[in-house]
Design a protein around this nucleic acid. Structure first.
Lengths: 199, 199
DNA sequence: TTGACAATAGCACGACCGTTCGTATTATTT
DNA sequence: AAATAATACGAACGGTCGTGCTATTGTCAA
């Protein structure tokens, strides 16, 4: 790994932390350079434009999410364990966030939902991928016989994802400790009522 | 109503629209003044500081939400109709938003969840009030015998609110038209499984 | 070790930020 | 109609924004 690639990675780590608290728009090249002890122009040269820096941050956030939430869950046995693992890792990621300010992609989703452009396209793609991932895992749980054959898998995914969103909101802003129990209960009930009738 | 109060109201209307698309931080005095065809300093004098402008915008957003979502629902008969009305108006508010960029308070919730200060305090208070409102309405539905006596009303409120959040996110960013059916189905099922056993 | 090139710094730019101030123009009241 | 207060404006402030340049430093293969 060349020196350039190394500093680029260092920059992105700090940028990711900054984005998680200040948002993609609040991420500023001057402040970022100052935190890293380097010059604005030196940092700038790594990305060519602010938008490309933001895009790189978004990409790295997606990587981090995949490493922390998705991949460990995908390593579990297919079917219900994998579905459970997905939600469980998501809750854990919110509870003890790797990033100080919560998931930057979720924040960016709201920040950019009315600002067309390549950044919003990236965000949309990530959220769609996540939805497909959850839906696919649920579908496989149906195929394995862990969940009802007539289950509406997309309805299930919508409810599960909404609960995780709601949990993030409640936990991060209101700091209500009961939120964790609420989301776990809700997820469990969602699964229980989706089980095969005869089981 | 004096002239000052009138222009102040005009300013806030435009500021609210701007905030809904650009966020409270993206709201800028220069651009706002330009849109209104007035000078920066003239506009500024109405609020004294940017933070106070933001606070005023937040207050007006809460008013608008109360007028559009809460009050019409509260006019319905107490019990289940009121609970249903609350969710129904919330969904309608997202579907045909009075504001071009969706609910500013929900956006601000994520924007400010890591930025201590009077603005965050306002946002927290609004979200807590909303939660109490929903919880109270559900509690009354229990008292009326419309919902199970042993229902965990706060769990119910958490799930209902999360579904509305999830709906907003899915509908506004992903523009998936199926989202409306999903959230309605989910809310209905939430209510159905909370009904008294013998009914 | 040297030559080629990547990486970083320094400086300047135009634009916009929130804010202040003095002044002019209106409204409102006497 | 005169006096007084409320309202709005224009210009300017110090700062920061993103973004170009040019020059210097550092890295790494030949």
């Amino acid at each position: 790994m060349s020196k350039g690639e190394r500093t680029r990675a260092t920059i992105l780590d700090e940028a990711l932390a900054m984005t998680s608290t200040d948002g993609l728009t609040g991420l500023t090249i001057g402040t970022l350079a100052e935190r890293l002890g380097m010059s604005k122009s030196g940092l700038f040269a790594h990305f060519g434009s602010k938008e490309m820096l933001q895009a790189a941050v978004l990409g790295r956030a997606a990587e981090l999410y995949a490493d922390t939430v998705v991949r460990p869950a995908m390593a579990l046995p297919r079917g219900l364990p994998r579905v459970l693992g997905l939600f469980e890792n998501w809750i854990a990621w919110t509870l003890a966030p790797v990033l100080p300010g919560g998931c930057p992609i979720q924040a960016a989703s709201i920040e950019f939902d009315d600002r067309p452009g390549p950044l919003r396209d990236m965000i949309i793609r990530h959220q769609e991928d996540l939805r497909h991932l959850v839906t696919g895992a649920v579908k496989r749980a149906v195929d394995e016989g862990h969940l009802r054959a007539d289950l509406d898998v997309e309805q299930f995914a919508f409810e599960g994802i909404s609960l995780c969103f709601g949990f993030t909101q409640t936990y991060r802003l209101l700091k209500d400790p009961r939120a964790e129990a609420w989301v776990r209960t809700a997820i469990n009930q969602l699964i229980e009522r989706s089980r095969p009738v005869g089981a």
